[in-house]
Design a protein around this nucleic acid. Sequence first.
RNA 1: CGGGAUGUGGCGCAGUUGGUAGCGCACCUGCUUUGGGAGCAGGGGGUCGCACGUUCAAAUCGUGUCAUCCCGACCA
Length: 576
Amino acid sequence: MRYSQFFIPSLKEDPKEAVLQSHKLMLRAGYVRQFSGGIYAYLPLGYKSLKKLENIIREEMNNAGAIELSMPFVQPLELWKQSGRDKDYGKELLRFKDRQDRDFCLAPTYEEAITDLVGKNVHSYKELPLTLYQIHLKFRDEMRPRYGLMRAKEFIMKDAYSFDIDSEGLDESYRKMKKAYTNLFKRLGFDFIFIKADSGEIGGSYSEELMVISEYGEDKIAICNNCGYSASLESAVSAGNFPEPLKSCRQPKMTKLATPDKKTIEEVSGYLKIDAESFAKTIIYESEIGFIAAMVRGDREINEHKLKKIAEVKELNLAKEKDIENITCAPCGFAGPFGLQNIKLIIIDEEIQAQEYWITGANEKDFHMANVKPGRDFIADITADIRTVKDGDICLRCAGRLNVKNTIELGHIFKLEEKYSSVMDAGFLDEKGINKHFVMGCYGIGVGRTFQALIEIFSDENGINLPVSVSPFAVSVVSLNPNDENIKNIADKIYSDLLKSGIDVLYDDRKLSAGVKLKDNDLIGIPMKIIIGNKTIKENKFELSIRKTGEKEFYDNLEDLYARIKEFSLIDGFIK
RNA sequence: CGGGAUGUGGCGCAGUUGGUAGCGCACCUGCUUUGGGAGCAGGGGGUCGCACGUUCAAAUCGUGUCAUCCCGACCA
């Protein structure tokens, strides 16, 4: 491909709408363009690279015995009424009508479609097990799309669905697919981990998320450095700090401490010169059953997911400042667990119950209270684990330490069991002639997200730096003086030689200054450059510049140069 | 959906107390250049997101609205 005839609108400056390095680079390198929040076009260069990634995914899926198909992106809403998910999905499901006034939606996922399809076309246990997959669009009307392809409304996903005769079969299909994921993400060079997850809207009995560890990730997980325990921060548990009760017979009474204008734990702890661990914070929430007070140690955060489950509520929000003033009879920042008005539940963390004395708010402006004793000065309705795991916490299973890390969720695999096949009545006859529902699994990979995550990893200050197996081109021929007849002839020849030998080559024949061309070729992520200019031509040498290392190699003849390019092209190279 | 920020040629930005818009890059023409974002000369392009209002006069002030981005609640 000649650069001058291709379409690569590169940008010299960072676009202001992008914040992640990968997002900036995809825009600058002319890989993608945004049309609306969360809606992107893949430009030729990005599309070419994306297709290479898709083909690697395809290979691993096919190796695992999955079969590719493509289902409709526009779906009759009726399908979603059958499963009942038209209601569950809410506003994420984009609905519209056709000219006959029939209801349709853009597919946010494909469980209904595949269950319908297989239900209508598979009738016997002899045709099972079966795993089908596709790589194409999904649309979710996200409340907040962001970070480029990382969270888009319209996005590309690989989704696979397995159909088995029983749970044992599902276990086997699930195991195979998990193995395929492991192979794939290892091959792509990611540092990843599976964690057990909530099944969310998709549902089912068991699910695991494939998390890639990245400082730019939006999700936090906790990993034990000893036993390998891992969980999302929402569900992670750690061993609490439960000190031995003091032996002393003295029972100090609650004592007021003046803390003028000191509201946050940090401020009070700094003012009184006492560790945050000695404080208990009291947070007021509002829920559909009324106000709830929750307490954790001063240096900790409340885990609202745990709190919701314990309190058995669906809605949980921090109470408004006005309500807090009414409940605690003090301005926000001085709440304590005693004498609270209009509180339905007091829920305290196990650590609060376990320690004898705490410093809390005094429910009075500019005062805190010392020697507050659980059970004496206030009574909790429920004591439970409602704390968020902190980096360095002790693992509940072993003596190891928990590390909290940022991650990006690139895959999610589910055991659906009969969730969809039963509501949609999709099944088969078993060997005894009895009607059974399919036992299903589903397996997703965010392809666009994975693509961007690759660029996040494989890039540097000069631009995108992808390995050959996913780079848009393997090599570029950069003609520094396209007006020089001699140089032009040599560059033309090398270009056509490489084309003939099947190398994916970009020929930068533009009549621009040398610097622009070299910078562009670095930016857009071409792993190798053959640089043709007077300097090397005079010495009868051919120069190959390796993008990853910045090293320059010189060859006396074209055969050696071509051999080197072929050799380099064969390396998968997903090693940083 | 709540909180915050920003909308000015293609891109990135400046524009003071209101007086009718400018810079860099990109683009077009010509010449000279070509080893890391070239030089000279000439040139084109903006009803300042949109609407309404205040004013003799609005990019600038007010109200509303839309879009984009960031933080939070959800997700691949």
